[in-house]
Design a protein around this nucleic acid. Structure first.
Lengths: 190, 190
DNA sequence: TAACTGTTTGAATGATCATTCAAGTTAATT
DNA sequence: AATTAACTTGAATGATCATTCAAACAGTTA
């Protein structure tokens, strides 16, 4: 089937899942070949190398996350109202048995100082998320407060992403979020 | 020099550092051989295999962390007084250029569902930390409050460990901690 | 229909991986 | 001094790693 380019979206979805679940180092090209259905040559022609495919997978995941986030933020009057819902979906996710934390967070922590380029790539995407929260908080807050609130949200999200990975105790997680983020507009029925 | 057992403490320190900085998968036995100074045979006799050495490294790190934590908690009247100091050291650490997050957190996120045994090993150590905070909070709080406070602390610590790995902005981190943990006895000057 | 161009194919490559084990070494025991 | 026991040594093993590339293929163009 030469001259019939593969479905890049599908390939990226498979690759993203592999890297997300197994990690960058532990995901072999052989695994990628199996899961994407592409032959090595095709992968290398399309993405250059393993690192290239990883980067595009990161972008694929990050773009989805950002789109999702933006949509939810737009649905509510303020970030203070939207965030309880966002956080609750994160908590719900973290309770599922196949929970795999956040691809960006996992990647960030896996990459070492030696892999500066990849690490910066991930950092950039994470900062984009924070700046989205920051911009949203700016509507009802001074710049300093918005900055602190955005950072506090990031701390809590990172926390949920790590905490939920080893302990599936939903109630405890929710209590901790209420305690740490009392300035959010939590729904009244607890 | 047969019959002269190697210095296990030194070996574990080297191995811990390697695993901590590079991650479990990315640390090869060859690297371990170089850094510990042991020959492959000696490592396998003493630790069984790579996984065994990794486990002992985790324990070595976890024990040090717990000892440190316990000592600091004992130095102050309450956990509410001790924690600002503990958190500030974590923030300080996160600002250093060679910062490498927390070995336990990194390992937890690197291990996948397939490596159940190793993952549980790490989870257990992380839970021990939380229960230490919990026990300390019990002195001045009801059980429910102590539990929520301990969870909130864990969220913030995980947050610092991830946040600090990609963004070295000390002030932002401190502001976020003040915002999220107002019930701690922060020192008056700031 | 013949030549061309961009894509796929998959076996091959050499490097590196975790692990093994027979041989060597040294201290303790007899 | 001879033997035994405990440990170290490091080359070797086979598996798996990321990557390459010549050949096959199928659309497009001339």
């Amino acid at each position: 089937m030469a001259r019939v380019r593969f479905d890049k979206e599908k390939v990226l979805e498979s690759a993203t899942n592999a890297f997300w679940h197994l990690g960058y180092t532990a995901t072999s090209m052989q695994t990628l070949v199996e899961l994407t259905g592409l032959k090595p040559g095709s992968i290398y022609l399309a993405f250059g190398n393993k690192e290239g495919l990883f980067k595009e997978s990161l972008d694929y995941y990050a773009q989805q996350s950002l789109d999702n986030l933006e949509a939810t933020l737009d649905k509510y009057q303020s970030a203070e109202e939207a965030l309880p819902h966002i956080l609750m979906t994160f908590v719900e996710e973290s309770c599922q048995s196949e929970y795999c934390s956040c691809f960006l967070v996992k990647s960030q922590l896996e990459l070492s100082e030696q892999q500066t380029e990849l690490k910066d790539h991930v950092s950039q995407r994470l900062r984009k998320v924070e700046s989205l929260y920051f911009a949203s908080f700016l509507k009802n807050n001074t710049e300093n407060v918005a900055k602190a609130k955005a950072a506090s949200i990031m701390l809590h999200i990172f926390g949920v992403r790590v905490y939920g990975y080893h302990s599936h105790s939903k109630d405890q997680l929710i209590d901790a979020l209420h305690l740490g983020l009392p300035w959010l507009s939590w729904p009244i029925n607890h």
